[in-house]
Design a protein around this nucleic acid. Sequence first.
DNA 1: TGCATTTTTTGATCTATATCAAAATCGTTC
DNA 2: GAACGATTTTGATATAGATCAAAAAATGCA
Lengths: 185, 185
Amino acid sequence: MNPLIQQFRRYGHLNEAAEKEIEQRIKYFSKRKGEHFLKEGQHVSSYFVLSKGLIRAYFFKNGRELNSWFGEENQIFGSILPVYTERPSFENIQFLEDSEVYAIAVDDLNELYRKYPELNLIGRKIAEEVCIVLEERIISLHTESAIERYQSLIKLQPNLLNRVNLGHIASYLGITQETLSRIRR
Amino acid sequence: MNPLIQQFRRYGHLNEAAEKEIEQRIKYFSKRKGEHFLKEGQHVSSYFVLSKGLIRAYFFKNGRELNSWFGEENQIFGSILPVYTERPSFENIQFLEDSEVYAIAVDDLNELYRKYPELNLIGRKIAEEVCIVLEERIISLHTESAIERYQSLIKLQPNLLNRVNLGHIASYLGITQETLSRIRR
DNA sequence: TGCATTTTTTGATCTATATCAAAATCGTTC
DNA sequence: GAACGATTTTGATATAGATCAAAAAATGCA
């Protein structure tokens, strides 16, 4: 089954007609390591899923890259600003491995929200779950030391460490690579 | 008009029947400064609005209080964990001024989501807006120094400074009161 | 008005993490 | 398996912010 449909189903029931229409609008593509899905300032707004691969979201602050999140297989995600508002993205989304992507554009989704109001239940559940994840990150940044933040990340995304270099992890944690290296010792 | 209904309307159209039923379930109460709306571990889960007053959400870490957010008049809020999941709250919500509150229980709301599926549109929009706010807080904690975080807060909630003491602000910013005092100089 | 309590500021010192530079290790390719 | 670039670690020093203690200022209240 389409991996994006599979994700939608986790949040609630989809009637057949709606599901069929969603499926028709889902676009598949594959990307090579290093390519971008989305660059800062663009309006590319989609929910998407990787059936294979790995991505990071990052932005620039004082000329340096800062990673805001990593995405692995079979999670649903999007760039919050362009997906939930009319504003363009302030972040870049880049593939860290060769990846296969299933995406649905927010414009298409909005049409379907109108046509199948029950679909809003799923949209609501997704946004609510995003809130939970974001809140955990806030608590981590607000209350934890560098070491604790590192340990939290390992618990949450244990595979990341094998797939991503330390510089990326450090930038996500908000510390320098040198500090992360010392922490790990 | 009921201040909570007023908030719901900001997010989308409500048909009359749904609106009437929501209104019937909204509870009004007033609380004195210092009283609590919700304590850690409880399941009290509601969306609510203050027509008058001020609240803070806080939790304990290593025996110290840490403020997670402040709520002023005519914003809709709730404690994310109990409102969006079955889990109890890890935070406490306390009134910092004598306040007047309009609240609707999530159980009631869930019933109405079932009865009036269009209502999910509003629920979705609210959760999406919460995501935006949370993301801004993440960026602030992730990338900004204490001074910058202080300036961001002033921009976002300028009245807070006149209504809340510095200790509360410092704890929200994740710094000590002494540091905040020096920053302001 | 004066006293007690709370809040804010100041001072001295300590600690976690940043910065800059260089060395060590790992991975890839010819 | 030698040589190159990328990644990670180590070292020396600097800095933002924490901590603990106390003084100063503001606030509330009898």
